[in-house]
Amino acid sequence: MTATAPRATAQRTTARGGFPRWRSGRSLRRRDRLATHRWFLTPWLFLAPALTVIVLMVLVPFVNTLQLAFTDSTLLRTGDFVGLDNFRKMFDDERFSTALLNSTLYTVCVVPVMVVLPLMLAALVASTPRLAGFFRTAMYLPVIMSPVVVGLIWTNMLDKQGLVNELAATLHIVSEPFPFLSDRWLLLFSAMFVTVWMGLGYYMVIYLAALVNIDRSLYDAAAVDGAGTIRTFLDVTVPGVRSTMALVALLSSVAAFRVFGEIYVLTDGTGGVGGGDLTMTMLIQREGTGLQARTGYAGAISLVMFVILGGLLLAQLAVQRKQRNS
């Protein structure tokens, strides 16, 4: 916990939109200083293991998915080209619209919380220096836990006779236990809560790193002006970490749209009553695996998911660029 942070370096990466850009200019200049080697294959030998895995397990499968999406393949049979049939089928598929709705809702609800709450926590933790290390560790703990384990823990907590319902009954808030794990919407919101519970610490640590870079004199000035805690937070802290907020929005929206583990465990793998809690990832997993897998259709769903995630990324980058220019 030294205060002698290399501020200049940190600002360089955060000030310009939250994450680094590939500085082509610098790497061009750097090329002249790269070391030589005698044998033309040397760099390729260094690259071989990584390239093999990346090409074989990521790039080839991606191209393959592009192809699959326009065929009627199943697991046991290579299908024929069917044009846009899979995408037409999707529009009539109720599970697809459910999954798309759920994943979208998930993103819309989780992201604002993930952007704001960890920042408030980080500001709080940073203002209590003696406990900061402890809280950082404590809040990071759920982050390294498997979604399966977290899902099981919260299954126990949210069950009809779980701790939450027992506490509610003790306080006489309700006469009937909340159906957290059987009602479609309550389950979805419970899963969102679990996601937030798991992710808070991760984003808080990112914010903590960003808070170090805010000019301290701004806080002094705010204090002189008589600004209270909330005013200071809104007028000094928030503008100071704006680019980090954009980064967190990007990371958490992509993560939220891809949600799988928590909701899979909370629904015990069923996707909720009547599949009402399916998400996009769950749908891909169900359609694309097992002996009855319709790999072509699953490929088409994957492609839609890729386009949406790509769209999220581009939208965020556009917003960031606009912020930087204004």
Partner: peptide, 16 residues
């Protein structure tokens, strides 16, 4: 990030 050594997180971050 391009940097390899990042600042340790700020326990010393400014409190108002």
């Amino acid at each position: 990030r391009t940097q390899t050594r990042a600042p340790r997180t700020g326990t010393k971050a400014p409190g108002p």
